[in-house]
Design a protein around this nucleic acid. Structure first.
Lengths: 147, 147
DNA sequence: TATTGTTATACTCTATAACTATA
DNA sequence: TATAGTTATAGAGTATAACAATA
């Protein structure tokens, strides 16, 4: 008897590459769509990210914001400058360690962040609209597993 | 009887936002990890993308490459210049329409592309290592549904 | 000495408009 | 006049090194 081929003939790339490609593409499309929704609010994704981290961490230093976002703190200066000029957040010198700047949202910043989060939810709903409740749970769990 | 609350109290963001966030994060991490694997081959993701499109399309014009990658052709010039200088691809004036440049891989480019694809497969295997065969199929199908 | 924030520099990617050569 | 490629320019993001103030 002739041996069967160990793998059936394939037209495209192997399954793992398909998954990686889909992940990169869908992730990129999601980031771009979110940026588009954010733009009319006067926010870019990085700015929204900073405000979100500030809200979640509750008065972090600039170094802590950088650590949370996975970027060097030097790359945050211009962004924080801009958000501060627009009155959405404030730097306050930490009295206990005068090298540190504690960053906090203003009232206007808190309202703006809420707008951004609403945009994020609208876009997220749009993104997963094709999935059933069961499929959503499955996707979330699978993504969490490889995150 | 007292009414039950319509939704149970939640600690984090709603499920759809969790999924969107995970997708953006995992997609970004995947892109970054792939870029890191590509770097020692002397390739950046955009360069690999161009070579891959050229191989799949078989002699596309620069405009067609841009369309396939979703970017303006003017953003391809420097990349193609660089790949051409390193001898991995060639521009050939289309004799039928002398405005068009038909782009093709050289032999060295074909070999380099194969190296890049091998790197992509290694990284993809690493990415989905935590998943069973069944879970992989499920993830691929879910991603394809929202792509 | 070490750390925090800051400045300066350089490089990549993206977007846009204007130019050229061909059609 | 329309299209393919090119050039130039500007903006955002990222990475790195060096500096001042503070610890």
């Amino acid at each position: 008897m002739a041996e069967l081929p160990p793998v059936p003939p394939r037209k495209g790339p192997p399954e793992e590459v398909q998954i990686a490609t889909l992940l990169t593409r869908v992730g990129g499309a999601q980031a771009a769509a979110f940026a588009t929704l954010l733009a009319p609010l006067g926010l870019r994704p990085k700015q929204f990210g900073v405000m979100n981290v500030v809200a979640l961490a509750g008065g972090p230093s600039q170094g802590e914001i950088g650590a949370a976002m996975g970027i060097d703190p030097s790359g945050l200066i211009a962004t924080i400058d801009d958000l501060e000029e627009r009155g959405w957040l404030e730097r306050r010198r930490d009295p206990a360690d005068r090298r540190r700047n504690v960053v906090a949202l203003t009232e206007a910043g808190t309202a703006k962040l809420a707008e951004g989060r609403a945009a994020a939810r609208r876009r997220a709903e749009e993104l997963i609209a094709p999935l059933s409740a069961k499929e959503r749970r499955a996707l979330r769990d699978l993504l969490a597993k490889i995150a």
